[in-house]
Design a protein around this nucleic acid. Structure first.
Lengths: 167, 167
DNA sequence: ACTTATAATCAGCTAAACTGATTAATAACT
DNA sequence: AGTTATTAATCAGTTTAGCTGATTATAAGT
């Protein structure tokens, strides 16, 4: 660990986030995501899958009937990348590609029993990391943070949608 | 000279946030970052630079004296990628690589006048996007969100640091 | 029927992260 | 001192993810 060069005054108290970035929402959000997914990936490494795989499983968790393109939209991952993720999961026996009854171009992705079990198993380290990450916040703050993020994301998605409609 | 990826060809993004993901912090943070940086890149596209370039300029804004490795640490970008970003900015005349007085292996990155001007110019669309993104929140909520994110990020960085010390 | 659009796939390209090696300078050790 | 180990920046090579364009089969619109 190298000590910061010139303007070092206090003993060991270095603030990890330099003042230039503290006020920048883009930096804070990007850094939060980076740290969170990095830690989640580390915790999932034993499973052989990544957070992205987990996200795909999670999307299929409740109701099946999803196509690959649905996942592209909600996860914001490219179609070709989704293909590879689904390939991985299918190869591992965690999901199946079944033909869509009403549209035979598309697949209906469905979790296998092994897939449901794997998802449940992966949920444990994921929630543990969430818990640790959110530790600095009170329960009320956590709820508020989540609600605010949801509000921001939904609003931004709305805006994007209406923008692309005018094109 | 990597122009920001514009992602204009995305057809209807109709679904808001499906219920499976609404409770997942990882999803919300990842989505927020994705939307925000995507929009910022779009707004910066005219400048020929990306948010990453902007972030480098921003890190050098106040006090110079930064080495390339310092930027790697704070931005979480790989050394070789930082090199290319600095190459771009140097080629554009926005910063200079000067030899570090006390350590002649390292460079001291310093903004040129053109670099300062470019940074100020880029700040306008960046702040405009921040403003639009945060529109759904009240001023009080914005301040709280930012403070909470900072708290989370600093705590996560602390944890990462102490973990790597035990190695 | 004819045209257009769409779901999944494939092949090729670019950007970014990562690895390992190199060079020069510095730090650490004995 | 002299030897070794680290480190900053670079370069070269590999891998992964995103993007583009094309293909095939199906669907929808006129």
């Amino acid at each position: 660990m190298s000590a910061p060069p010139a303007n070092e005054a206090s003993p060991a108290v270095r603030s990890p986030v330099p003042p230039e970035y503290r006020g920048h929402l883009g930096f804070l959000v990007a850094k939060a995501r980076q740290l969170l997914s990095e830690q989640m990936d580390a915790r999932l490494s034993a499973s052989g899958y990544s957070v992205r795989h987990f996200a795909v499983l999670g999307g299929l968790g409740r109701q099946s009937g999803l196509r690959q393109t649905d996942l592209c939209d909600t996860l914001g991952i490219d179609r070709t990348t989704i293909m590879k993720l689904v390939d991985d999961l299918e190869r591992g026996g965690l999901l199946q590609r079944n033909r869509h009854p009403d549209d035979r171009r598309a697949y209906v992705l469905e979790l296998t029993d092994a897939g449901q079990a794997a998802h449940a198993r992966m949920l444990v380290p994921i929630l543990a990391e969430e818990e640790q990450f959110l530790a600095p916040l009170s329960p009320g703050e956590r709820a508020l943070l989540q609600e605010m993020l949801l509000r921001l994301v939904e609003r931004a998605l709305d805006r994007k949608q209406t923008n692309s409609q005018s094109t």
